[in-house]
């Protein structure tokens, strides 16, 4: 299946911060250091693809966009591998890239289709693992999460789904820790209301 072509600007359109551009950094760090970073990025990305896709899906609510986001993220990461700090978590770095591509490049042009990330189709495209019906409860939870505003949904995902601490989530989102906590509180309040008003299929917790 073909995916819409990416509209990622080439490196040249996007000046890197001083001293951190590919050429400058490469020159400064030397070829062996550069190769080391490139290798870490090249080897670090494949194990992350599924998780990146999931993050893209949580953000965009659409599986094609999620795929596109992963592709754009990998491309950007490979191009900017000199900016990766060896020894740090490549997952956080890649998440940050994906998020910035979403915020700056894809979100604005994406009209939400309303299919959402728990459409049965999602289950069926999963490389043949189309057995989501054993997973109704999980799907129901995802449906509820999807109804949350983006900020709350993302906080719920990062903290409860990815296991980040409030601090780590805050750093990734570039917001104060207290804001992460209030988004979680708001999300919980909204989900409680869903439960209270019978607008759900979940048994009581």
């Amino acid at each position: 299946m073909a995916f819409p072509s990416l509209r990622i600007k080439p490196d040249g359109d996007r000046p890197a911060p001083a001293g951190r551009g590919t050429v400058a950094a490469r020159g400064a760090m030397g070829d062996s250091e550069f190769s080391l970073r490139r290798k870490e990025v090249q080897e670090g990305l494949p194990p992350l693809l599924k998780r990146l896709w999931r993050y893209g899906l949580v953000l965009s609510g659409d599986s094609d966009t999620a795929h596109e986001l992963v592709q754009a993220t990998c491309l950007r990461a490979l191009e900017k591998c000199d900016q990766f700090q060896p020894g740090t978590q490549i997952s956080r770095w890649a998440y940050t890239i994906l998020r910035s591509i979403w915020m700056n490049e894809l979100r604005s042009r994406r009209v939400r289709t309303g299919n959402g990330f728990v459409d049965p189709e999602i289950a069926l495209i999963a490389d043949g693992i189309g057995e989501m019906d054993t997973n109704l409860l999980a799907r129901q939870v995802l449906k509820e999460v999807e109804r949350l505003p983006e900020g709350q949904r993302e906080a719920v995902f990062l903290v409860y789904g990815e296991g980040l601490s409030y601090r780590e989530a805050a750093d990734m989102l570039g917001i104060p820790q207290g804001t992460v906590m209030s988004r979680l509180a708001a999300a919980r309040a909204k989900l409680a209301d869903l439960k209270d008003h019978g607008d759900h299929l979940l048994p009581a917790e």
Partner: peptide, 17 residues
Amino acid sequence: RGGRPFGEAFDALLQAA
């Protein structure tokens, strides 16, 4: 009451990737 088994739900999403 606003708590859910978020982790399990997101894990299911990972399986669907």
